[in-house]
Amino acid sequence: MYHVLLPVDGDEDRLAKQLETLTTLPGDDEITVTVLYVHEEVDTMPDEAGKSIIDSVNKAIGELQGVPETVEQAVDEIEAAGMPVDVVETQGKPTDRIIEAAEELDVEAILIAGRRRTPVGKAVFGSVTQGVILQGERPVFVAG
């Protein structure tokens, strides 16, 4: 058996590409999958006493946001394909949390979907996919 990390966001098109790629991997009857959803943190200004309320704000945001429907959709389709699956929610910068989760879970590979951006868009907004490929130490499959 080998373990694949499947980070998802709210984009159904990217999820469809990831699931299509997942089901075409060799030995799909021997794959176990962890679906990962990362709640992005929010930066806050300190209050009058200089105390940051970032931890409580971020906890509340994660609880209020919930997870997108794509997480449940991923689980349903992976289970329908006969693969064991579990879900992990975390909070932080997506690139960092994906890499950390891959190491903590000791996965063999990360299956991520790319997003089409112009070079300027990548420079301004960054690219989670690019960050995971360049900073991580695990093999990365990019569904495109």
Rank of each mutant, 00 (worst) to 15 (best):
V4F: 04
L5Q: 03
L6Q: 08
V8S: 13
D9G: 02
D9R: 00
G10Y: 15
D11Q: 07
D13K: 11
D13I: 01
R14S: 01
R14H: 05
R14W: 06
A16M: 05
K17M: 04
K17S: 07
Q18R: 09
L19K: 03
E20V: 04
T21K: 12
T21M: 12
T21A: 14
T23S: 10
G27D: 08
D28H: 15
I31S: 04
T32D: 15
T34D: 07
Y37E: 06
V38A: 06
H39E: 07
E41K: 14
E41Q: 14
E41H: 11
E41F: 10
E41L: 09
V42L: 13
V42Y: 10
D43H: 03
M45R: 00
P46S: 06
P46Q: 04
D47R: 00
E48P: 01
A49D: 12
G50H: 11
K51S: 12
K51W: 12
S52G: 07
I53N: 15
V57A: 10
V57I: 14
N58Y: 09
K59E: 15
A60F: 05
A60V: 01
I61N: 10
E63F: 06
G66V: 12
V71N: 03
Q73G: 01
Q73Y: 02
A74I: 00
V75S: 00
D76M: 05
D76Y: 03
E77L: 15
I78S: 05
I78E: 09
E79R: 08
A81N: 01
G82H: 00
V87K: 13
E89G: 07
T90N: 11
T90S: 14
Q91A: 07
P94V: 08
R97V: 14
I99V: 15
E100Y: 07
A102T: 11
A102K: 11
V107M: 08
E108W: 05
I110M: 00
L111D: 08
L111W: 09
I112W: 12
G114S: 15
R115Q: 08
R116W: 01
T118M: 00
P119V: 04
V120P: 06
G121I: 14
G121V: 11
S127E: 07
T129P: 04
G131Y: 07
I133R: 01
L134D: 07
L134T: 08
L134S: 05
Q135K: 10
E137C: 00
E137H: 12
P139M: 00
F141W: 09
V142C: 01
G144D: 06
G144A: 09
